[in-house]
Amino acid sequence: MTRPNTDASDLLLDMRGLTLGVATPDGILPVVQDLSLSLSTGETLGIVGESGCGKSLTSLAIMGLLEGTPVRVLAGEIFFRGRDLLRLSPRERRAIMGNEMSMIFQEPMTSLNPVYRIGDQIIEAIREHRPMSRRAARDRALELLTMVRIPDPAGRIDSFPHQLSGGQRQRVMIAMALAGSPRLLIADEPTTALDVTVQAQILKLIVELQKDTGMGVMLISHDLGVIAETCDRIAVMYRGRVVETAGARELFQDMRHPYTRGLLDSIPEADEDVDRLSAIPGRVPTLDETITGCAFHPRCARAGAGCDSDQPALTAFAPTHFARCHYPLEPDA
């Protein structure tokens, strides 16, 4: 499952030292710090963490959608197919957005424009990057709706968003994202707002489309279960930093960071008779709280000397397995 990222030509996305900050009356507060992650063609990278850990902001920064939010890129580079996105002009970035790189969002109910027919919204995405007749674009839109398995695409193409269910709307969002045949698809909590049964269908669809098109997928979720089922590689984020990253199987068999363990233990298992959910004690610290050392130490059972003063470095446990912890877990015997 896990692909080693040694072949540089395969490298689709390479973030180095990405640091994001939000301007507040008290100064600039960091929300994502020194984030380095990469993603290869055909790979599915999962980013997991509790809300507020910076995973969504990271995806918006990659996509170029931070404008209109108070968040700014403070430092770092985002290489996409060899070009640093942060050094491109707005026009050059827009040529990539919705074309080589596209994104689907958490809220399918509100992410489509309510006043336009879904077909027209897909056609707009197609024709923005590939000049073609409306008729040709409509045929292509029908093709895309078929690809995302909307039942009766010809009948649905002229529907308005409010006439579709949440799951169907998310399929339309995916169809729109595929309009430019993207190399990279960013899916930010694509199933969070959907019914559980629909969640599985949408995830399956994303995985299948990824296999068919060979695109890279960055899947962002707070749900380690969702990530585990779909991803080749996983990065766990906590308070703006990657605390552990590894191949999916590697991570579950040999997790090193206590936070990753905590996330895993928080998933209730259906076949177990659980009286109460196991939760990570404490809460995610707010942005304006300064925590020295490891940001997780106030909630960590293993915290010891140095955890409250020194930021642990990302340490290699295997060629593709890194974690940021002074007292990492021992591999299960």
């Binding site: 404008e67 827009r94 957005m97 919705g98 596209s102 969002f105 509100t110 992410s111 707009e124 430019g180």
Partner: peptide, 16 residues
């Protein structure tokens, strides 16, 4: 309207 989600979708299409 500028704050609505679908406007972000429109920007994500790469529209000017």
């Amino acid at each position: 309207v500028q704050r609505e989600d679908h406007v972000r979708t429109a920007r994500a299409k790469g529209l000017a």
